[in-house]
Computed example of a mutant assay.
Amino acid sequence: MVVIKALDFTVKIDELQKHQLVAKTYSDEISSNQVLLKVDKFSFTSNNITYGIVGERMSYWKFFPTQSGYGIIPAWGFASVIISNHPDVKVGQRFYGYYPMSTHLLVTIDHVSSKGFVDKTEHRQGLPPIYNFYTNTEHDPNFTPETENLISIFRPLFITSFLIDDHLAAQDFYQATQLIVTSASSKTAQAVACLLAHRKKEDGLRFNLLGLTSNKNVAFVKQLGWYDQTMSYDEISHLNASEKSIVVDFTGNYQTQFQLQTLLNGNLVYNCLVGLVDWQNLTGENPLPQKGKLFFAPTYAEKRQKEWGAAKFHQNTGMAWQQFIDAIQPIISIEEHSGTEGLEQLYLDTLNGKIDPRHGNIVRLNKRGD
């Protein structure tokens, strides 16, 4: 029997600043239809912090259970099969998907095809299907080795961005003439802005796309070229409050929400809540005038897949993805973080908002060649 040493990076559910490394082992004697994957790499962005903040409410802790009081934040990346007890999944195959912040993942294979498989491990039953599918890179039309880091960083975020853009267009933008995107430098906001700017140009639409960001990121957001206007949070009072407005909120900051809601008042026609980048400032003394509506991408994705069919859904997202990847590739530089020390520092920096939006962060817990 061969023993494989593994590590999980776990965080304290009610105190995210605290984390623990948990050592465990696997063997090559796995059950029928099980496969052991070695996690090659995964991305880490502010989106992963959102997973942690709403982990209990949105069931993110259920994907990769660990010791009591702790959770494993999910991440998107690539893994290779090192042991297989399924006839249609071969050692050496690589899969893109939803992984723990760990060195390994044991899955139970179901609905396998050339495109990939579904993990039907018992504790994952009842969770959103979009998170349980693993894509075979050999048969992924949007995969190239040259862009796999960008795929890891942007693809999961991009689907959310695509669905937000699609939803707004389907609702005729709620007749708004001003679209305000908070945390405009964040990765998901970048993709939203790119898609909205493209749609605006192609369809001859008339709305002002405005990015709100911190003072230190104003120059970067302006350089993106997708926002018609860029402002810092300090300048919110200078917004045109007479325009019917949509807010797409990735920050979750209570004070920002309070200012926007109070200023725009009845002209805030849709308050779309997406992310919690500023997780340390989610509450305030007074109740907010409007609650806003949480945009949960998996639910909207299922709706669109039923309406369009799976093939059309993948075709539409694939075309939009290629358009975005061509635009973002020259803008983002890849930063690799190796081993547990690299992950620990990146995790704390992201948690504390110390990330340069020009960088895309990739983690390798396993050493190359292991």
Rank of each mutant, 00 (worst) to 15 (best):
V11Y: 03
Q290E: 06
V269I: 04
Y26S: 05
V181F: 13
D8I: 08
P65W: 06
I4E: 03
V81C: 11
Q329Y: 14
I53Y: 08
E146A: 15
L163C: 07
A219S: 14
A75K: 05
E341T: 08
G225C: 04
G342T: 09
H238M: 14
T144K: 11
A310N: 15
D234P: 02
Y96R: 09
V91I: 15
Q93S: 12
H139D: 12
L365N: 02
S46W: 05
P156I: 07
H123C: 06
T350E: 05
K12N: 09
S68G: 01
E202G: 03
L179K: 09
I13C: 08
A327L: 13
K293F: 12
G55C: 01
D172F: 11
K200V: 13
P74D: 05
G225M: 00
L343M: 04
I49N: 03
A176T: 11
G339S: 11
Y174R: 05
N136Q: 05
Q20E: 15
V112N: 00
N142K: 10
N267L: 12
K62V: 02
K12S: 12
K187E: 12
I82K: 06
Y99I: 07
Q20D: 10
Q34V: 04
D370M: 08
H337F: 11
P330V: 05
D8L: 13
K12A: 05
Q229F: 08
N215W: 00
N253V: 12
S80F: 01
G339M: 00
P298C: 06
A301N: 02
K216L: 07
G77W: 06
L264D: 04
R124Q: 08
S84M: 05
K120Y: 06
T177A: 07
T340C: 10
L127R: 06
N142F: 10
N132P: 06
S84Q: 06
V2F: 02
